[in-house]
Amino acid sequence: MSDHENRLDYRRLKQQVYRYSLRVAEDAWEAEDLTQEVLLKVHRAWATDRSRAVTNAYLYRIVCNTWRDKARTDRRRPRTAGVNAPARSGEDGGLIARELLESLAHRLSPRSMVIVLLMDVFDFTAKETAEFLSSSEGAVQVALGRARLRLRTLARQTGPDRLSPPEAPAGSGEDRIDLDTLVEAFRRRDPKGICGAYLGLASRRVKLSQVRWIQGKFAFGFEDPDGNRFMVTG
C-alpha cells in the first residue's frame, strides 16, 4: 500500500482546497468556511475508501458542489461566483481548474488551448488575446466559447476524479525544467510551442502563475514544486 493510501497530506490538501474555495467564493471569510466543510467531506470519503485518488480535479469538484449547495440554502447570497457565472473569463466552473485544462489539453487544438490559457487562466482580455494571435476579438470570443463547451463536455464524459495530470515527455529527465522554451514560444506567438512547453512544466509541478504583457515584453511568474516563486522576463 502506497503512502498516499496510508495517509493524506493535510497541509497540502488545505492549501489546495482554500485556493479553490477562494476562487469560487471570492471572499476570504466564505473561503475559510467552505474550506473546512470541504476538508470534512474529503476526510469522510477517504476514510470510507482509502483507495480513492484525492486528485486536484476531485478536490475542485467537491469545492464547487459544496459551494453550490451552500448557495441554494442561502438566498441572501448575491451571487455564486465561479460556479454559475460563465460570462466572465476565469469564472466558468467547468474550466477554472487548470488541472482539468491540463488533463484535457490534448483534446483541444493548440490555438484553442492558448486562447483558454490566456483568457481563463491568465485573465487576458479578448483584445489582448486577439492581438497576441493576430486575430480579431470576435474570432477569439467564438473560439473561446467553443473550447469551453468542448472542455465541459469532455469533463462530464471522462469524470473529474478519473483525470490525471500530464506526464513528462519521455526521455526528457524529471529534473530538467526548461523555462527558455516557454519564453521563446511566447515570443514567437507559437501556439503549439506554448502548449508543449506549458504542459512540460506542469508535468514537473512547476506552476506558471501569471503572464503579463508589458510594453512589448512578457513577464512570467513561476512557482516551483517547493513553493519558491520567481519571475522571468523575455
Rank of each mutant, 00 (worst) to 15 (best):
R229N: 05
R146D: 01
R72L: 14
G196I: 12
D27M: 06
G234I: 07
T233G: 13
R188A: 07
S89R: 10
L201N: 00
T73S: 13
T125H: 03
A130N: 02
R212V: 11
L8S: 08
R77S: 01
F230P: 04
S209C: 14
R205M: 09
A155W: 06
W46C: 00
P169Q: 03
I214M: 14
N56H: 10
R68A: 15
K207E: 15
P165I: 02
L39Q: 06
N65S: 10
D49E: 06
R75Q: 12
R76I: 11
D226N: 12
R188S: 02
R12A: 10
F230D: 01
R107K: 12
L95D: 06
K217W: 10
I194S: 00
S89H: 13
L154S: 03
D74F: 07
R98I: 07
S109L: 12
R146M: 05
L101S: 10
A170F: 08
T80N: 12
T55Y: 02
G234H: 02
Y198P: 06
D226Y: 10
G82Q: 02
A130D: 05
R77Q: 04
A168M: 00
A28C: 06
G145F: 03
A147I: 02
Y10V: 07
W29F: 10
L149I: 12
S203L: 00
G193V: 06
A105W: 01
R189I: 08
H43P: 08
V83A: 00
A25E: 15
R23D: 12
K217P: 10
S89Q: 12
P191R: 00
F132Y: 09
A170L: 11
D180P: 06
R7W: 11
V24M: 07
M1A: 13
G90R: 00
I62E: 11
K207H: 15
E167R: 08
R7N: 11
G216Q: 02
D123S: 15
A105V: 02
A45V: 06
S136Q: 09
V206N: 14
F132V: 05
L154C: 05
E32V: 15
K127Q: 14
A28W: 14
V17N: 06
K127I: 10
L117N: 00
T129P: 01
D33S: 13
Y18H: 08
E137H: 13
G145N: 02
E184R: 11
N6T: 12
L208H: 00
M119H: 11
E223Q: 03
Y18G: 04
L179R: 09
S164C: 09
R111T: 02
G171E: 01
R189W: 08
A155N: 05
L100F: 14
L199A: 03
G193S: 02
V17D: 11
A97R: 10
L13R: 00
S51G: 07
P165W: 04
R152D: 09
R88L: 09
S109M: 07
M113Y: 12
T158F: 08
T35C: 04
R148E: 02
R72N: 13
A130E: 05
R19T: 14
G145C: 01
E30M: 13
L208S: 03
S109K: 11
V24H: 06
G216F: 05
D123K: 14
H106Q: 15
Y60K: 11
S112C: 00
M119P: 07
A97K: 07
G173K: 03
Y198K: 03
I115Q: 03
R189G: 08
G145V: 01
L34A: 04
T129Q: 08
L144I: 00
Q210F: 15
W213T: 06
P165Q: 02
